[in-house]
C-alpha cells in the first residue's frame, strides 16, 4: 500500500521531533525502511512510546483526525505495525480509511 504523503510527512516530522532529543549517534533516518522496533530496531520501548505519542500528534495536525496507534488491535497484529516507518504508515492509512 502506498502511504499517503500526509502520513509520511507526519511520521517524518515525528522523527525530527525525536531526533531533537536523541544523541547524534542514535538519530533516526527519515526513510520508510527505517526499522523502529524489534530486531535491529533503533528504538527501545521508551523511545517507541515517545515516537508513537509524537506520531499521533503529528498525524492529528497533518490530517485533522485523531487516531490511536497503540490499542489492543495494534498489539494483536501478527506482524507488528511498529516494525518500520513504512509498516506504521500503512497501519495509519488503514486507521484513517476506516474512520472516513
Amino acid at each position: 500500500m502506498a502511504a499517503d504523503s500526509r502520513i509520511t510527512n507526519a511520521l517524518f516530522s515525528a522523527i525530527d521531533e525525536l531526533n531533537d532529543i536523541r544523541p547524534q549517534d542514535q538519530q533516526l533516518e527519515k526513510s520508510l525502511d527505517t526499522v523502529l522496533f524489534g530486531q535491529d530496531g533503533k528504538l527501545d520501548s521508551i523511545g517507541l512510546v515517545s515516537f508513537i505519542v509524537a506520531a499521533e500528534q503529528k498525524i492529528a495536525q497533518e490530517t485533522g483526525r485523531s487516531i490511536t496507534l497503540a490499542d489492543e488491535r495494534a498489539m494483536s497484529q501478527k506482524n507488528s505495525p511498529f516494525r518500520t516507518v513504512g509498516t506504521l504508515a500503512d497501519y495509519c492509512s488503514i486507521l484513517l480509511a476506516e474512520g472516513e
Binding site: E17, I21, S50, V53, Q57
Partner: peptide, 8 residues
C-alpha cells in the same frame, strides 16, 4: 505526560 515528556 504526553506534553511533559517532550520537555523531559
Amino acid at each position: 505526560a504526553k506534553l511533559m515528556q517532550r520537555g523531559e
